[in-house]
Design a binder for these strands. Structure first.
Lengths: 335, 335
DNA sequence: CAGCGCATTGCAAGCGATTGCGTGTTTTTC
DNA sequence: GAAAAACACGCAATCGCTTGCAATGCGCTG
């Protein structure tokens, strides 16, 4: 930097937070010269001294889940506008990777962490708590941390009410992992909605992960427990498609024999056979809100943690049909 | 760090590249003590002095594309094993974002860049060339840079040959963006394969992006140009599904009236209606090879750039059927 | 007009690692 | 057994920026 001013002045002028300390005309000149010279400050040096790296970590559970790209994009869009970069890490269930992530945090690589994994008892979270690293969670509640979640109870309630209105009474649930908030809450909403109608779940099976394969496995389990079921509410589109896979293999027709609802409204679920009735959640909203909360948290660490809940929306397609004037599978008499 | 040795020795012991400079027993002791104290070196300080940040940038074009998650995961897995983190940036076609990315590079935030966008004439690439930042490209060739690509010519050849063997003769192509290597090469493979059979393309329409909407638009265009076509080869699954959307709206049956092939074998394309015949590319392989090339490039900048080409594989499902004993759309006579 | 306060800028000490150089010690060599 | 080479490690400068403090100059008040 070659101007007639001292480098400390340049530093102050370049940093929006300290810019008010330098005279307006000097600031303008500095910005102009910096632009001409293509000067960029060295974030390593800056971070070394000021102890922030201008990068935010994002932890994803499982690439296989189609719901993340949109969320990530939204996060990045909001953060990039404030000069933050995104460091992504995939952390399925393997511990070595968790350890690695913690190490990166410990290396002061990250100014904040956005967790999109819904698993509880996470060493990464414990680390954030201990070192009070700004964290915001998506898809899960953590006391004392900002979070943005879908109203998961409401999600499955919507699905159940839809099926009830179609005349279904023997409804099973292919649930998410019990270790995940999403899994537990969606299950709770499912049970509640049935209880209100004076009904009991036909069957409930927890998946271990939100995958198609798990969906198939769980389908097998619920059909075993409740051969006369007429509908299945699932906790994710992938699980629903897994159920469809199972049913196709066993000659059970959807929606003719059994209706199915998914969850998330992931890309392409409108194009599958049959187009999936599902509960849409606001993926970009989840990301954008989370990023905003993160920025607010960084600007003002003392503020009380906000918890944002977004409303789901039922999207009816072809995988659910009315039972009225139709026989459900298991009635036992011929046409 | 509180041992009886000097911090320079610690630094050397902790860095695998300089570890040979210190005695084995001292190294062991240092590693052990570091472990006990939970000591992590400060990457900002380290990077400031040594001018490398231990992070690799990855630029993605478009989140909407389902092909990236697997590739990213593979990249991260390989790089994380060597202590590198991943900085991701989405760079569709908007220039402000490109500028932002270049600025991050300029801030020495990144030791290398993996480009997954196939667009040509990219300011980011120019920056890498000028500042000889290690770069490796996926899905595109760049002279003097390592790259890993699918054999895109072969991809569409496979698709065309498959359709030819089913008796199709009037085949159209919904191509990728002409600005993308993938778009041009897949188109070239398509044309070549037809030429070998002494045939001409029924129609070719270039999409502007690999999206469903563009697929629909292009479908409209090719049906306009060649109403008698019996098959469409597309440059991506998203485009293929867009074609299916269009056909569904216009009462054209797939595969009854027109056969369609996709490209990439993205998740769920086996579950759509009809299950899509597509050309599978090795998504994790693309990522893993790219990451390995990056590491090699960093270790040994002088080595000649390797160019890796992976072989595609045709996956036949239900969206393509034989024309033998069947009438294609446009023959003009009733059953 | 002296004195005070405020706004603006310069000074210089770090932030925590890396690394070229130098010194001390051990091993090799003839 | 002495000189040379190899090996291990310490020393201290340095990377580029931030920031508390000091210094300067200005306008304003009494």
């Amino acid at each position: 930097m070659r101007t007639e001013v001292h480098m400390s002045t340049v530093s102050r002028a370049l940093n929006p937070r300290t810019r008010h300390l330098v005279a307006k005309d000097v600031t303008d000149k500095i910005l102009q010269v910096a632009e001409e010279l293509g000067y960029r400050l060295n974030l390593n040096a800056s971070g070394l001294r000021s102890r922030h790296s201008m990068t935010i970590g994002v932890i994803l559970p499982d690439v296989a889940q189609a719901v993340f790209p949109e969320t990530i994009l939204a996060i990045e869009t909001v953060l990039a506008a404030r000069g933050y970069s995104l460091l992504v890490a995939h952390a399925e269930t393997d511990y070595p990777r968790h350890r690695l992530i913690v190490e990166q945090l410990a290396s002061h690589l990250i100014d904040g962490l956005i967790m999109t994994t819904a698993r509880r008892h996470d060493p990464v979270i414990e680390y954030c708590i201990e070192n009070d690293l700004p964290m915001v969670t998506i898809h899960r509640h953590e006391p004392n941390f900002p979070s943005v979640v879908n109203d998961d109870r409401q999600s499955t309630r919507l699905a159940v009410e839809h099926l009830l209105s179609l005349g279904h009474r023997r409804i099973a649930h292919v649930a998410g992992p019990p270790s995940a908030d999403t899994g537990r809450l969606r299950r709770a909403g499912f049970v509640e909605a049935l209880e209100r109608a004076g009904l009991e779940p036909a069957a409930i099976e927890h998946s271990l992960r939100y995958t198609r394969e798990e969906g198939s496995r769980c389908a097998s389990a619920v059909f075993e427990k409740a051969p006369d079921l007429t509908a299945i509410v699932t906790a994710s589109d992938a699980l629903a498609i897994g159920c469809l896979d199972y049913m196709a293999r066993h000659g059970i027709d959807c929606p003719g024999d059994v209706s199915i609802t998914g969850h998330n409204n992931a890309p392409l679920v409108d194009a599958i056979d049959p187009p999936l009735t599902t509960v849409a959640i606001d993926l970009p909203g989840l990301g954008a809100r989370a990023a905003e909360l993160m920025l607010r948290r960084i600007d003002n660490p003392g503020a009380p943690p906000e918890q944002i809940v977004l409303e789901p929306r039922l999207i009816v397609r072809m995988s659910t049909i009315s039972l009225h004037g139709k026989r459900g599978k298991g009635f036992g008499h011929a046409p």
